[in-house]
Simulated assay, not measured.
Amino acid sequence: MRSLREGTRAEALRTARTCYDHLTGKLGVMITTALLEQGALVTLDGEPTTRRRETGRFSAPLQEHPYELGPRAPEVLDALGVDLARVRTSRRPLLGML
């Protein structure tokens, strides 16, 4: 049986956590979904959602990244305070493997 502390921590990790410089968990999925809906991201495989791809095992790394910046990326990201020009010059990839 889990303690209250363990259950609370597990729920917090499911909600939002970071892995290096990636936001994961429910919050990461919600943000990705919103960026897709706003046209800031588009999918490369035609699947318009964040749903796990048929070809990928649940916990295995994806072989190809399914997203790229969409036509509204500059507008949407600027409204969020993201300096796209600065982010593009970072040593870290803008859209890393998920």
Rank of each mutant, 00 (worst) to 15 (best):
R92T: 15
E54V: 08
M97H: 12
P48Q: 09
V42I: 12
E47Q: 10
M1W: 09
A85Q: 11
A40Q: 02
A79F: 05
L23K: 01
T15M: 10
A12G: 11
G56R: 14
R52N: 08
R17P: 01
L95A: 00
R2G: 06
R5S: 12
T33H: 07
D83I: 05
E6W: 01
G70T: 01
G46T: 09
R72Y: 02
T43A: 03
R2H: 10
T89F: 04
R14I: 07
R92V: 15
V76G: 01
Q38C: 10
G39I: 01
E6C: 03
R57P: 02
A16F: 09
I31R: 02
T8E: 11
L77P: 00
T24C: 13
G56A: 15
L27D: 05
K26R: 15
L36R: 01
D78E: 15
T8W: 09
Q63L: 10
L84D: 03
A73C: 04
V76M: 03
V42F: 00
M1K: 11
L44P: 00
V29T: 12
R2L: 11
Y20K: 09
R91W: 10
R86Y: 07
F58P: 07
L94K: 02
D83Y: 03
L4K: 07
P48V: 10
L62V: 12
I31H: 03
R52I: 13
C19V: 14
C19D: 14
A79V: 06
V82D: 02
R9V: 15
S59A: 13
Q38T: 15
P61E: 06
P71S: 11
V87W: 05
C19W: 09
R9W: 11
P61C: 06
G28N: 04
E6P: 00
M1F: 10
G7C: 07
R5V: 14
R53F: 05
E75L: 04
S90F: 03
H65T: 13
M1N: 11
R52Q: 10
G46M: 08
